[in-house]
């Protein structure tokens, strides 16, 4: 099962290399293959250990979900090596910091327990996608402003072709921002569903919607509030601009990584020792 995950991580890295070489189709193929192997490794893990349930599988499932979301942009013109780079980094993180912690199925005897885990992972994946689009929007707008200053200094004024190229660049930035916004909305949707499922599970199991001995509860709520604020940015004119919005989403995905993914990771271990 660990071998299949290692193979998946390898496919993601090949996909990254092919994307750097501008071979989009081959890159998308390896990304798809990686996602399939990644899913297989999770399936095998669940099947192999039942009736014990593997907790902390988020780190393994997230690269698969982010990878699946990246296939379309990789094939289209909106793709960038940052997409497979994000997936590869997430897969390598899970590979080098494994956390195989298993619990008896007894306390998971409700669909809400599984919904809590699954929706949470989808939410995280969406927030990472938002971070990717935000990063792309930032680098494209930085490139755009650099080109603009260079061309203006070269020619002395803004000719028609310069204006045209700037228009194309700004459209591409706004497309990225639109995708970033959509990813945040979806992430917020699944994150909220995960929190509510967790509350229902906690109520059914322990009679209270909040379990006060899980420190992840605080960072989960912090992430939820952070993206709540993001969704209110359109009401604050000074912050509802491409740069602050993209920065906000980028910091948000860093918060998701540090606050909710890192605590679920294990100690550094060499992948070969896993099999």
């Amino acid at each position: 099962m660990h071998l299949s995950f290692m193979a998946a991580a390898f496919c993601y890295i090949i996909s990254l290399a092919l994307m750097i070489g501008s071979r989009r189709r081959a890159s998308a193929f390896f990304m798809g293959l990686g996602c399939s192997l990644n899913l297989l490794s999770l399936g095998v893990r669940y099947y192999g250990f039942f009736p014990m349930l593997p907790l902390y599988q988020g780190a393994y499932l997230i690269p698969c979900l982010v990878g699946a979301c990246c296939i379309k942009p990789i094939l289209a013109s909106s793709g960038h090596p940052i997409h497979p780079l994000m997936v590869s980094s997430l897969a390598l993180t899970a590979l080098f910091f494994p956390n195989d912690y298993y619990l008896p199925v007894l306390q998971f005897k409700t669909p809400f327990a599984h919904a809590f885990v699954f929706f949470g992972v989808v939410g995280k994946a969406m927030f990472f996608m938002a971070g990717t689009w935000a990063f792309l929007a930032l680098i494209r707008s930085a490139r755009q402003s650099r080109e603009r200053s260079w061309q203006t200094s070269e020619t002395g004024d803004e000719t028609e072709s310069i204006v045209k190229s700037q228009l194309v660049a700004s459209i591409s930035t706004s497309e990225n921002l639109k995708k970033m916004g959509n990813a945040v909305i979806l992430g917020f949707f699944f994150w909220t569903l995960s929190i509510f499922s967790g509350a229902v599970w906690s109520y059914l199991g322990w009679g209270s919607p909040v379990v006060w001995d899980d420190p992840l509860m605080t960072t989960t709520m912090a992430v939820w509030l952070y993206f709540t604020l993001f969704l209110h940015l359109h009401l604050i004119p000074t912050l509802y601009k491409p740069f602050p919005r993209a920065m906000f989403a980028l910091v948000g995905s860093a918060l998701v990584f540090v606050g909710t993914l890192m605590p679920e990771l294990g100690m550094l271990r060499w992948p070969g020792g896993l099999s």
Binding site: D213, D214, T218, T219, L229, G259
Partner: peptide
């Protein structure tokens, strides 16, 4: 909300 985010992150350690 910004203060709440900071406060919740600070609450991780004691919890």
């Amino acid at each position: 909300i910004a203060l709440m985010v900071v406060d919740l992150v600070a609450g991780y350690h004691p919890l």
